[in-house]
Design a binder for these strands. Sequence first.
DNA 1: CGTTGAGTTCAACAGATGATGAGTTTCGTG
DNA 2: CACGAAACTCATCATCTGTTGAACTCAACG
Lengths: 198, 198
Amino acid sequence: MARRTGRRPGNPDTREAILDAARAAFAERGFDAASIRAIAGTAGVDPALVHHYFGSKDQLFLAAMNFPVDPGEVVPKVLAGGQDGIGERLVRTFLGIWDSPAGTAGIALMRSAVSNEWTARLLREFITTQVLRRVLDQLDVDLAELPLRGSLVATQLIGLAMMRHVIRLEPVASADPETLVVAIGPTVQRYLTGPLPT
Amino acid sequence: MARRTGRRPGNPDTREAILDAARAAFAERGFDAASIRAIAGTAGVDPALVHHYFGSKDQLFLAAMNFPVDPGEVVPKVLAGGQDGIGERLVRTFLGIWDSPAGTAGIALMRSAVSNEWTARLLREFITTQVLRRVLDQLDVDLAELPLRGSLVATQLIGLAMMRHVIRLEPVASADPETLVVAIGPTVQRYLTGPLPT
DNA sequence: CGTTGAGTTCAACAGATGATGAGTTTCGTG
DNA sequence: CACGAAACTCATCATCTGTTGAACTCAACG
């Protein structure tokens, strides 16, 4: 079985080049507006090769999104210090991620989620099952309050990311991260641990 | 002068029908993804008629956005009660607008601003010159702090609108408005009148 | 009536897009 | 070496896009 002759699949890094170009394009223009031709162009590759590797534009998008920060690794760090100051730590970590290569994927996901229903579902599920659930699982609050607290936090953080990286409204767009941490941290803290409307 | 013969322009409401269809389409799909053909279709009209009335897709978009809430009318109402409770009043008014017909235009503007540079500029200028400036002009705070306070508020409010009307994350998406007012009002209040990082 | 001009439609162009399938090159293995 | 499979390219299709210009309809005016 499995006669393995022929050229080995351990191919060079053109596959990664395509993924990089795809992430950049999706981040800059969103899913619909980013064209496979343009992606292939900046990757120095024939458009058909993209299909050869990834099959369809949808699957290319999925592949390009497939190295976000692993929430299972980063969330515990944020929670490590206990409930005191968790708001500021969360905002600080959140801001840091957007400046990393994973942030490109995040911007791509956010941009795409706005005009494309299935990418919106993707973002929603990522937020709920990957981030909020992990954070709130380890937080000492009433179980019935978790969803509201979680989505309130999401409200503030997504708004922050939108203003800073998509709409680029000044001075938030180029503000020093620590300034934002001090300003917004208490908000997140209150949403997580403060009193809530009934 | 002005020899006026021929069919009078006192035409029926097909022009308004086009604008309604355009607002709906832009709100649902964003500027790029909304097609003139689809708009003409739901308006029961030939696509060429859209161009006859509005010239180009850009101008159609501008015309469709041209009946937002007049900020010059709504802002004073929010400010009327003084600084106490202005946070809650702002959130309440903000939420109300999105459920009105003008909210459709707002969603359209937000959706479009994400994947289209010139509509993003439009949204940015609307936020800064029409809303934030008016609100902060009448607020008793240090002039140097205005931009930061303003964009922090924008951060929270845009995030709220995004989560409630675009991403539709539960339970924020279908929460009772007053619940959100009580939860988010204090945040806005603090951004406007509370202490700030230096 | 008959001319005028706005309301409206038809047909078509030029460009871009995602996708396909056949073909060519390149290289590891037997 | 020779063969097979993967990496890669070319040409092309069908579709959709915004936009244009010529045509037709028809109510109002002289």
